[in-house]
């Protein structure tokens, strides 16, 4: 068993079940804590410049990764035309830089603002460090090892599917440059920290808001008669 097997076979198989079980436990038995602690009321201006670009940039970049994982053929076909490849690459890089800029503002904000520091816990710093590593290595990969949108589908898509289908092939990523490996391994660390930190707020995305009634009225004990007629 070599390092590559440990890092890219044992670690993912350890962290994913951990994340699932621990998240489920937290959602079911510790629901009070399932959210991120906003510090906007303490500091708003830097948050505006940091949070929006960080979140939207990251969500879009992650969506890109997900598309490459789920629809590799579509990506490959899209990239067959060089102009479309350049467009996709440039878009991905721009979004990565956008997210990184936001992350940098957020890190600076957490470090420099005394009020935000007062509500910062070690876990918040850990998450921020891991995310910054993720974004920096991602942006560097996009610039140093061009056309990731194409080789991702050839390397990471089969690798991740091999993990998902329980026929793991860590050898697929063995020959990648260390920077790319760090980027991938760092993701597993983020998965591991997910249920124990503020990252867990990702699962709280309140999509129900799009269709729930505006007003919520709750009866302590619903009266028996014609109860269906009431909100």
């Amino acid at each position: 068993m070599n390092w590559n097997t440990i890092l890219f076979l044992l670690v993912p198989y350890a962290v994913v079940p951990l994340a699932v079980v621990a998240s489920a436990y937290r959602l079911l038995y510790r629901p009070y804590t399932v959210s991120s602690l906003s510090s906007q009321i303490l500091e708003s201006r830097k948050l505006f410049w940091g949070s929006i670009s960080f979140h939207y940039g990251l969500v879009l970049v992650l969506t890109g990764h997900l598309v490459a994982l789920l629809l590799p053929r579509t990506i490959t076909l899209w990239n067959a035309e060089p102009m479309r490849l350049y467009l996709l690459e440039a878009t991905g890089l721009a979004l990565g830089l956008w997210a990184l800029a936001g992350g940098a503002v957020l890190a600076w904000r957490r470090y420099s603002d005394p009020r935000v520091r007062a509500v910062t816990k070690p876990a918040d710093v850990l998450v921020l460090v891991l995310l910054v590593i993720s974004m920096v290595t991602g942006v560097l990969t996009a610039t140093l090892y061009s056309f990731g949108s194409s080789w991702f589908t050839a390397v990471f898509t089969p690798y991740l599917w091999s993990l998902a289908t329980l026929r793991p092939r860590p050898d697929l990523v063995a020959d990648l440059p260390w920077l790319v490996k760090l980027h991938a391994f760092n993701f597993f660390l983020l998965v591991a920290t997910f249920p124990f930190t503020r990252l867990v707020h990702i699962v709280t995305l309140p999509l129900g808001y799009l269709y729930r009634p505006w007003q919520l009225v709750i009866w302590v004990r619903r009266p028996p008669r014609d109860s269906a007629a009431r909100r």
């Binding site: 629901p31 009070y32 959210s35 009321i41 309140p206 729930r212 919520l216 709750i218 009866w219 302590v220």
Partner: peptide
């Protein structure tokens, strides 16, 4: 406040009209 809550954590009690935050459902979107 009830209408604006993305998590649906705020509600009005039908019996006496008191508006309350369910702080277990509250995700702090503010």
């Amino acid at each position: 406040c009830v209408a604006a809550c993305p998590s649906g954590a705020i509600y009005k009690r039908a019996e006496d009209g008191v508006v309350l935050v369910n702080d277990t459902k509250c995700r702090g979107w503010r």
